[in-house]
Simulated scan of single mutants.
Amino acid sequence: MPKVVYSNWGLLHLIAALASLVLGTAVLVLSKGNKRHKQLGYSYVGSMTVMLATSFAIYRQFHSFGIFHVAALLSSITLCAGMVPVLRKKPTLSWQRLHYSFMYLSVLELYVALVAEVLVRRPGMGFWDVVSLSTATVLLPGTALFTRFYKRWQEPSYRPQPKLAPL
C-alpha cells in the first residue's frame, strides 16, 4: 500500500485540501449572502491559499515543477478572480454573478484535482488516463450543473435571499 503523505508539507497540504473540499462544498450548497456564508467562504479562501501555497513545496511526483504546479497556478487565478468582485463590489450590476461563477469553478477545479490525485496514485494510470477520467467524472457533470445555475443567476430578478440561520 503506497504512502499518502511523504512530508510535513504534504500533511499540511492534505489537511488544507480536505478542509477546502468540505468548506467549498458547504458554501455552494448552503444559502448565500448571510453571515455563515461569508465566514465559510473566507475560511474556504484561507484553506485554499494554504493548500495552493504548500503545493509548491511538493516535488515528489515529477522532481521538478510539474503539471500539478501549473494547475495550482490556474486555481490561484480562479480563486483571486472569484474574490476580486466581492472585495471591490464592481462591476456594480454583475459582481455577484462573477463571484458565483469563479468560486463555483474554483470548487469544481478542487474536485477535479481530488480525482486526479487519487488516480495518479493508481499503478498503470498514464497522464492522459488521469486527465480523461478526471474530466469525465467531475468536469462534465459539474459544467452541466454550472450551466443550469448560471441561467438562474442571469435572471434580472435573481438576488440571493439572506437567511439568518444559527451558526
Rank of each mutant, 00 (worst) to 15 (best):
L79C: 10
A116C: 07
A71R: 05
G24P: 01
S101D: 06
A116R: 01
L18I: 14
M83G: 00
A26L: 15
G33Q: 09
H69S: 15
K38V: 03
L79A: 15
Y104Q: 01
S64Q: 09
K38T: 08
S75N: 05
L119A: 01
H37N: 14
M83H: 01
M83W: 12
Q39E: 14
L28D: 02
I58Q: 07
S76I: 02
L110V: 04
L40H: 08
S94A: 06
A71H: 12
S20Y: 03
Q39R: 13
S76K: 14
S20W: 01
S43I: 06
Q61D: 10
L21S: 08
S43F: 06
V120D: 06
V50Y: 08
A26C: 11
S101R: 02
L21Q: 11
P123G: 15
V45P: 13
S31Q: 04
S76W: 06
V50E: 09
A26K: 15
Y111P: 00
V29I: 04
V118N: 02
Y44L: 12
V115G: 00
G124Q: 12
I58C: 05
Y111A: 00
S43L: 11
F68R: 06
M125T: 12
I58N: 01
H63P: 15
F62K: 09
G33V: 04
V84Q: 07
R36Q: 04
D129T: 00
A57L: 07
S76V: 03
L114D: 03
Q96Y: 09
M125P: 06
C80F: 11
G41K: 00
G46L: 07
T25R: 09
L108R: 06
L98W: 14
Y42K: 08
T78G: 06
T25F: 07
A57F: 13
F65M: 11
Q39T: 15
V22C: 07
S31G: 15
K38G: 07
Y59C: 08
K90R: 04
L119P: 11
S64Y: 07
D129E: 05
L30P: 13
I58M: 04
V120S: 11
V120T: 06
Q61M: 06
P91H: 00
V118H: 01
V22N: 05
M51N: 13
I67R: 15
S101G: 02
E117A: 13
G46K: 03
L119K: 00
V115P: 00
